[in-house]
Design a binder for these strands. Structure first.
Lengths: 220, 220
DNA sequence: TATAATAATAAACATCATGTACAGAATTAG
DNA sequence: CTAATTCTGTACATGATGTTTATTATTATA
């Protein structure tokens, strides 16, 4: 039959081969992120974006329906940047049994704090700024699903073990706690190093409030 | 110059005695909250607000500079409603030593889940919706400062005790974890009761990840 | 209750960002 | 090379914002 539908039928996917398109979209993303840092998300106007990107205003609407659609794509590009660092981490090991610093979960939180520090200006505006809706949700989802996979991996190695908290609740709690702590930390101009923050997080999350507040608890 | 558009609130101290003023402001608040539930925050227009409140559009600007100023006041009125329930709770007792269900901290989180359930429609839109910026920040502040006072009270009864995590970090962590869990819970249409959620939160927060996932941990 | 002060109102107005339409210029892919 | 596409500028309609002004309505209080 038609084995040569390649040229026209795959346009939906291959449309972005056109250099102009990918270049334009990248310019728009960069312009938006830069403007968000400078003026915050809400006050940024489409004209400013296209002006910064050195493009005509009409061109914007050839690619995105509105400012928010561009924001989502931009956030995803940042989140993806973080995710590719986290994913290659080693598999579970044995979380819960011990909280050794080599725990991959611990390493992952450190990566999060570091990535936030590297992009602190953007993170700040994005996490508590006007675009917070999309950014928080997106990051939350990413972190949550990572934790979910992580714990499910744990479950496979101990099949008949029954968590005392629903997995969804657990992973959502983790994501919210971590993201919230990152946000607070950035707003205070990062008063501690990523390593310290990661360590504090470990104490609170893995050992709980008792472990975090009381120094001399008897470790079982 | 334009720092204070001088709405007529900062003049005398008791200038709000005029019935017309308090009535108008209350009408505007109610209208906004209702419209937020119906259409979300962003799309609500000043004209809709005043129309719903049965007021002239110009009247709005006699009281608030813009939609956001009204939003903040409205959120505060909700947060205040929650706070007055939390404050009269008994003093510390001994948190950390035991996690008995009568712990006032535990009781407070239960109140939060209950209040969220009672105002679930509003909470949903406000916490993850477009107005999330202000709402989250405000609630976060309130919860955080409550925890802070609580722990400082603890400190007074054991003066030479040195927490292993800075108090600010600890209280911020608590606020973020609780708020995040509430948000997740509302978005999922409250799949568990407030009592269950409060209990899950207790396990994760007080006992930590090990206590939350592993059932048979040896309790010291 | 009378009256001065204050608040609410409608109408008109200027401003600004948005989103769309269109026709021509520029660039790209094949 | 050339046909397809992408980009561009201009123009226009729309809708919300925030202000101004003159007038009416309500309130506090003496």
């Amino acid at each position: 039959m038609n084995e040569r539908t390649e040229t026209n039928e795959q346009r939906g996917q291959e449309r972005r081969t056109d250099r102009r398109v990918s270049r334009t979209r990248r310019q728009l993303r960069d312009a938006l992120l830069a403007l968000i840092i400078e003026h915050g998300y809400d006050s940024v106007t489409i004209e400013q974006i296209t002006q910064r990107a050195d493009l005509g205003r009409t061109t914007f609407y050839l690619h995105y329906r509105d400012k928010e659609e561009l924001l989502i794509e931009s956030i995803d590009s940042i989140a993806q940047e973080l995710l590719v660092q986290v994913v290659p981490l080693p598999k579970p090991g044995q979380m819960g049994e011990d909280d050794a610093p080599r725990d991959p979960a611990q390493a992952a939180t450190l990566l999060v704090f570091r990535h936030a520090a590297q992009n602190s200006l953007l993170y700040r505006v994005i996490l508590r700024g006007e675009g917070a809706l999309k950014a928080n949700t997106r990051f939350h989802e990413i972190i949550q699903s990572s934790v979910r996979e992580y714990v499910e991996e744990l479950n496979r190695s101990a099949p008949d073990f029954q968590p005392m908290v629903p997995l969804e609740v657990f992973s959502s709690y983790f994501a919210a706690a971590l993201l919230g702590l990152v946000t607070w930390w950035l707003e205070r101009d990062m008063p501690y190093s990523p390593e310290e923050m990661s360590e504090y997080f470990r104490r609170m999350f893995f050992r709980g409030a008792r472990g975090a507040l009381i120094p001399n608890e008897v470790t079982p």
